[in-house]
């Protein structure tokens, strides 16, 4: 390399270095008027709500998007040094992990009372924001009779036709619910019967819905809103419908996304304001329309074409119990699904 070219390279690099360090400094300013949020909910779906909040209150939000579980692990590592004020999670398990480490502050009674008692932490340090129902997604032309119970899925005629996502937290929450209601032994029997039917395994719910549409499988256990997500991505109608099981069947479990405030946050009241905003009637109604989720404040609202939350009759389970999650994983490992 000639000297002049080396010099050019060095000056270019130092210029970039300067830019980068300036950007880094800029991040540290004006912390007072703003809230730092760790959001396990994806930017696409939650950002409009954040923007509405900033517009209504003038409070700026610095949002770090990531995977709920990875963000929970990050908060656990940060401990008392966490820069986060509020943790917004896709699922109850991640909130339970952070709450279990005593890193969340108790929420105001007024916030907790916005939702039914099974949609908030018994430890009072997090509250659900939206509901996500487990459903059987299926191809209407290939599934003549719809099953009314998850126990029909382990019958012989389902061999090779069902898809599940065992590494996904939504499936694990479903198994946790089964252990809580039926006990570990009965759950193991169910899982082994399921395993015997050689279900197809996928990494994500969205991949299952896509596989049903493509004809690779006939049905799959997923969350209800993926049919919209996949149809929007593919830009066309898809050959997949959602079906609920009969009322109170375990297959109708409702998972939640939720929020908690970090104990170390110096912006407790601003953070409470954001949770109150997300739980307001207006925003709750918006979740049902925009993200096709269930409102847990207004259970009579229904995502287009689906029954309302109070008609599904979801089984009652404690979604926050972390020791149960470990038991679930141990069981899934034991039967060979993890």
């Amino acid at each position: 390399m000639t000297n002049s070219r080396l010099k050019a390279l060095i000056s270019l690099l130092s210029a970039l270095f300067l830019t980068a360090s300036l950007t880094a400094c800029a991040g540290g300013e004006n912390e007072d008027a703003s809230l730092t949020i760790y959001s396990g909910r994806s930017q696409e779906f939650i950002e409009p709500f954040f923007a509405a909040f900033t517009e209504a209150t003038g409070i700026e939000l610095d949002v770090r998007y990531g995977d709920s579980a990875a963000l929970a692990a990050q908060i656990l590592e940060e401990g008392d040094n966490s820069p986060a004020d509020l943790f917004l999670s896709q699922d109850a398990g991640a909130l339970g992990a952070v709450a279990g480490a005593k890193l969340l502050a108790s929420l105001d009674q007024s916030l907790l009372e916005r939702v039914a008692s099974n949609y908030r932490a018994p430890s009072k340090d997090w509250v659900a924001i939206t509901g996500r129902a487990r459903v059987l997604a299926y191809a209407p032309d290939r599934l003549a009779a719809l099953p009314t119970s998850i126990d029909e899925l382990i019958a012989e005629n389902w061999k090779g036709r069902l898809a599940i996502a065992p590494t996904n937290s939504s499936f694990q929450a479903f198994i946790t619910a089964m252990i809580q209601t039926r006990g570990e032994a009965a759950t193991e029997t169910w899982l082994r019967a399921l395993q015997k039917n050689s279900p197809k395994l996928y990494e994500k719910n969205s991949l299952i819905v896509q596989a049903i549409d493509a004809g690779d499988v006939d049905a799959g256990l997923v969350n209800h809103y993926y049919t919209w997500e996949v149809a929007e991505e593919l830009g066309r109608e898809i050959n997949v419908k959602n079906s609920f099981f009969s009322p109170e069947d375990l297959g109708n479990l409702v998972n939640v996304s939720g929020a908690g405030i970090l104990r170390t946050s110096k912006q407790q009241s601003l953070a409470s304001e954001l949770i109150a905003f997300l739980l307001s009637d207006e925003e709750q109604a918006r979740f049902v329309v925009d993200t096709h989720e269930y409102s847990i404040v207004l259970p009579e609202l229904r995502p287009e074409g689906l029954p309302a939350l109070n008609e599904i009759k979801a089984p009652r389970v404690d979604l926050a119990n972390l020791s149960d999650l470990k038991r679930t994983q141990a069981l899934l490992i034991k039967v060979g699904l993890l």
Binding site: A69, A97, T167, L325, K326, Q329
Partner: peptide
């Protein structure tokens, strides 16, 4: 990755 994700067991 799954261990972090499923059980938050670091």
């Amino acid at each position: 990755q799954n261990t972090y994700q499923g059980s938050f067991d670091r």
